[in-house]
């Protein structure tokens, strides 16, 4: 056992959990999670994973904090406007839990840097806000055999699935991104801030479950919820033999940067 006295106290409520215990907490402390996008989903995910004691948290985001982010991206505060999101988030994580090592990548996740950034992490959280990025993350994780949590929110609704190697991936369900501007982004359609928290914390919980091996992940399932009716349901998914990425005869063998409307890149 390598937990210090201080750590035993800090993580006592985890250790008390029968499924986690000291062994589970040590796994958390030794784990490395990459969070792509430090916005509505990445913010709550990062806060909870930091508090939980995830040993290394990687943050990827090339954007700076904008006043319109503050309605839901709870890791950034008003004085952070204009600051790189990864730096703003890092500062908060350091305050929550000095045990956590934070690595920042002040750039967007692209076909060029994806595999290099991914390689050191045990689990990936997709906290991005656009389809090209979500497909890129899916593709890169499948190719690199990294488990990840997909998440998406719009207006009052959210959806999430977890992928682990050998199981259904995002492309098994959605073949390719919709045409640019066919689906509105948050900046166009709006989003209830609180649902970012709901979904981001679900993603954090999935990451912690994966790390500790506790429970059943949202693998081969998609959770969909609507905050207006507060209905949650899970839809069963199957690995698709004709998936262009992980099917029997894959057509995609290298990473692709899909086109993205310029305004979306800016406004997230």
């Amino acid at each position: 056992m390598n937990l210090t006295e201080n750590q035993i106290e800090r993580y006592s409520r985890h250790i008390i959990l029968q499924d986690i215990g000291g062994v589970g907490q040590e796994k958390i402390l030794n784990s490395k999670v990459l969070i792509i996008g430090t916005g509505g989903l990445g913010a709550p995910a990062a806060l909870y994973l930091a508090a939980a004691g995830v040993g290394t948290i990687g943050l990827v985001d090339g954007d700076v904090v904008d006043i319109s982010n503050l309605q839901r991206q709870v890791i950034h505060f008003t004085p952070d406007i204009g600051v790189l999101k990864v730096e703003s988030a890092k500062a908060k994580i350091n305050q929550i839990n000095p045990d956590v090592i934070v690595k920042t990548y002040a750039e967007f996740f692209t076909a060029d840097n994806a595999l290099v950034i991914l390689k050191d992490y045990d689990f990936v959280i997709d906290g991005t806000d656009n389809f090209p990025a979500k497909f890129l993350i899916n593709d890169a994780c499948v190719m690199a055999k990294k488990p990840f949590s997909h998440g998406g929110i719009l207006r009052f609704a959210g959806q999430t699935l977890t992928h682990t190697p050998g199981h259904a991936c995002y492309r098994c369900v959605f073949n390719s991104p919709p045409p640019a501007n066919a689906v509105p982004t948050c900046s166009q359609a709006g989003v209830l801030g609180a649902i970012a928290g709901m979904l981001g914390t679900i993603q954090a919980a999935e990451a912690l479950k994966f790390i500790t091996g506790v429970g059943e992940l949202l693998v081969d399932r998609m959770l969909i919820f609507d905050a207006k009716s507060m209905n949650f349901r899970t839809v069963k998914l199957k690995k698709n033999p004709s998936c262009p990425l992980c099917g029997d005869t894959p057509k995609i063998t290298s990473l692709i940067d899909y086109e993205q409307a310029v305004c979306d890149l800016k406004k997230g």
Partner: peptide
């Protein structure tokens, strides 16, 4: 409490 339980649990894990 509950640190005594936490520590008992940690001791059992070894």
């Amino acid at each position: 409490c509950p640190m005594n339980f936490v520590k008992t649990k940690l001791a059992l894990e070894t």
